[in-house]
Design a protein around this nucleic acid. Structure first.
Length: 638
RNA sequence: GCCCACAUAGCUCAGUCGGUAGAGCGCAUCCUUGGUAAGGAUGAGGUCACCAGUUCAAAUCUGGUUGUGGGCUCCA
């Protein structure tokens, strides 16, 4: 037998016989390590623990402590689940795909007869446990593409056949455990006995290959961990996240509601929610004016012909609401750009006056598919902090950077972490290569200048131009697009926007569509979850509540309340005939930052005794001292 | 829009086998005047989401509609 040299991460070299596996190598170091190992990197490539090593090279073992371990375990758990399902339901169910995902894994099944229900979960879990306890070896096998097609066709697994038919490779790899076989790249745990902690979580429909024209598959979501403790931590985290859910908090804090009578996806803002909105809108106007934007306001409906001219009628009609009066058709605006262009067009423009930056808190209506509505995060009527920057091509760069800085400033104030994505030219697109290059480079260089990481979504741009998307996460870590910057060459063309250049000729400007918060509704949804309902003082709809200890201080409490309200503090008065503890509790539960307690002592000294919502009592102070404290704190966005 | 599930008092939820409904909180009234997270008593409040159907009888079974939740597709 030939000997090969295997270099380990610590630099040491093991000599083993050719054909030895990573498991064998692990054994030479220690039995414990071998037991702990899940897979390995051989020359940088992920391989199974029982893959024969044919030549000298590097080897790095993936143990339970490695970051990759969980993903492999979950992927193997997906196979185990598929095996269990096939064992239980046989030919009635076809397997398709089952990857590991963040927080777990899923497997998609096709069946005409078997409808999975949550009651099946314990049955499937029990079968999985049984199969795992059997501790079957998980074996990799490589066969030719043709043989694989024949094999899966013989088994009646049409979806697997389709997958293999679309593969380029000469050979494909299969994984077998017991009598279950699945097409898979691997790697997997060496034995099913290594899968110990798993839990089926939910059931969902999913289109085959993510295309709504294809068959609807049944997806079972599940999760798996290396030990029970990690599973428990994960379940606790989900529990905590549910407490932050903006839909739950929105009801508890009386911020907003939806009504079946009004219609799905249409928000009813209650006084406290409307106050929060209004605070954010005031903030927005101020910040935009500071940055050279001008406020504009367009109409809520515009003639249908205009939507035809813009291309929305052809490309976006499904999402629009239309109305007709006096035989004239109107479209309710799903976007704000049209009015802004009409304002631009209302008079001749010179290169000297560019860029123009039109800002509007524009309320739009979009007919979103019923299944996608989600609290405030996906609605049908919403207000965008929308602006259109119409500029010369040579100004794109500076304008994009300006918007990026704006976005970063605002994210800093709210304390958000975010993910950025650059989406480039899709296959179906319009405009010249030069335009696309220039716009894409402008966006890219703004991203590079920010020094922050971003993802590249090749070919994911709008048909009219590339874009940067900024995504924020909700309590459950789902990403929601908020800010976006899009370059557009099409609409200026379609609307024949022009400016007179230095040469006295007409030129075509470029338009940037951009939002900073995105939609006020969505932003507030994310904001509620971000702060778990405990808004900083400057955002709190109610900043303070005046509480009297007994009826005898009611008149003084009333006087303090009025003094605060006049000073612009958002304050409430609670002089109900209740014990102080009760009132404190209510204020605490509604997450009001300051509780101002007034008893005989305070009335005597003409002071108030503030209690912060973290439970800390402050020394008594005069009302005017409290007012200036609140003003200082709020103006610093605290 | 598609798949699965769900819809009972203002809120959170119970309601067994088909025999027309309960709790806690909240609300109202009264008692209590109490110093930092729930004082006590009494009372009001429900076309069981909506529309059909099965049945002597439907909150309960069946179908449809609307809405909601988790996904898929799509998107701020």
């Amino acid at each position: 037998m030939d000997l090969i040299k295997i270099e380990l991460p610590d630099g040491s070299i093991k000599e083993v016989e050719s054909g030895a596996t990573p498991y064998d190598v692990a054994l030479t170091i220690g039995e414990g390590l071998a037991r702990q190992s899940i897979a390995a990197y051989s020359d940088g490539e992920l391989v199974d623990l029982n893959t024969p090593l044919k030549s000298s090279g590097t080897l790095s073992l993936i143990t339970q402590n490695s970051p990759e371990a969980l993903e492999i375990v979950r992927h193997s758990s997906a196979h185990l689940m598929a095996q269990a399902v096939k064992d239980l339901y046989g030919d009635a169910v076809q397997v398709t795909i089952g990857p590991a995902i963040k927080d777990g894994f899923y497997y998609d099944f096709y069946s005409e007869t078997k409808k999975f229900v949550p009651e099946d979960f314990p049955v499937i879990e029990a079968k999985m446990t049984e199969l795992a306890k059997a501790d079957q070896a998980v074996l990799r096998e490589e066969i030719s593409r043709g043989d694989a097609i024949e094999l899966f066709r013989g088994m009646g697994e049409d979806y697997k056949v389709e997958l293999i038919e679309d593969l380029d490779a000469e050979t494909v790899s299969l994984y077998r455990q017991g009598d279950f076989v699945d097409l898979c790249r691997g790697p997997h745990v060496p034995r099913t006995g290594m899968l110990k902690v798993f839990k089926l979580t939910s059931l969902a429909g999913a289109y085959w290959r993510g295309d709504e024209k294809n068959a609807m598959l049944q997806r079972i979501y599940a999760t798996a961990f290396l030990n029970k403790k990690d599973l428990k931590v994960h379940l606790n985290r989900l529990e905590e996240a549910r407490k932050r859910d903006h839909r739950k908090l929105g009801k508890e804090l009386d911020l907003f509601s939806f009504s079946e009578e009004a219609g799905g996806g249409l928000v009813l803002w209650h006084p406290k929610g409307a106050m929060l909105r209004s605070i954010i809108e005031d903030f927005e106007r101020k910040e935009h004016l500071k940055r050279g934007y001008e406020l504009v306001v367009g109409p809520q409906i515009l003639k249908t012909d205009l939507w035809k001219m813009s291309g929305h009628y052809d490309n976006y009609r499904e999402n629009m609401y239309f109305t007709e009066v006096d035989e004239q058709g109107y479209g309710i605006k799903p976007m704000n750009c049209l009015a802004h262009m009409l304002i631009y067009k209302s008079k001749p423009r010179s290169y000297r006056n560019l860029p123009v930056r039109y800002f509007e808190l524009g309320t739009v209506y979009r007919h979103e598919k019923s299944g996608v509505l989600h609290g405030l995060l996906r609605v049908r009527g919403f207000t965008q902090d929308d602006a259109h920057i119409i500029c010369r091509p040579d100004q794109i760069d500076a304008e994009v950077k300006g918007v990026m800085n704006f976005v970063q400033d605002v994210a800093g104030i709210f304390g958000f972490e975010y993910v950025m994505e650059l989406s480039t030219r899709p296959e179906k697109s319009i405009g010249s290569d030069a335009d696309w290059d220039q716009a894409t480079n402008a966006l890219r260089s703004a991203l590079e200048d920010s020094g922050l990481p971003y993802e590249l979504n090749e070919g994911d741009g709008a048909f009219y131009g590339p874009k940067i998307d900024v995504k924020l996460k909700d309590a459950l870590d789902r990403e929601w697009q908020c800010a976006t910057i899009q370059c557009d060459f099409t609409l200026p063309e379609r609307f024949d926007l022009t400016y007179v250049g230095t040469d006295g000729e007409k030129h075509r400007p470029v338009m940037l569509h951009r939002v900073v918060l995105g939609s006020i509704e969505r932003f507030i949804g994310v904001l509620i979850e971000h702060y778990a309902g405990s808004f900083p003082l400057w955002l709190s709809p109610v900043q303070a509540v005046v509480l009297n200890v007994t009826d005898s201080q009611a008149a003084y409490a009333q006087q303090v309340f009025e003094q605060l309200r006049e000073a612009g503090v958002r304050v409430e008065l609670d002089i109900r005939n209740e014990k102080l503890g009760f009132k404190i509790r209510e204020a605490q539960v509604s997450k009001i930052p300051y509780m101002l307690v007034i008893g005989d002592r305070e009335m005597e000294n003409q002071t108030i005794a503030p209690r912060y919502r973290n439970g800390k009592n402050m020394d008594a102070m005069t009302v005017s001292d409290f007012i200036s404290m609140v003003q200082t704190e709020a103006s610093a966005y605290k």
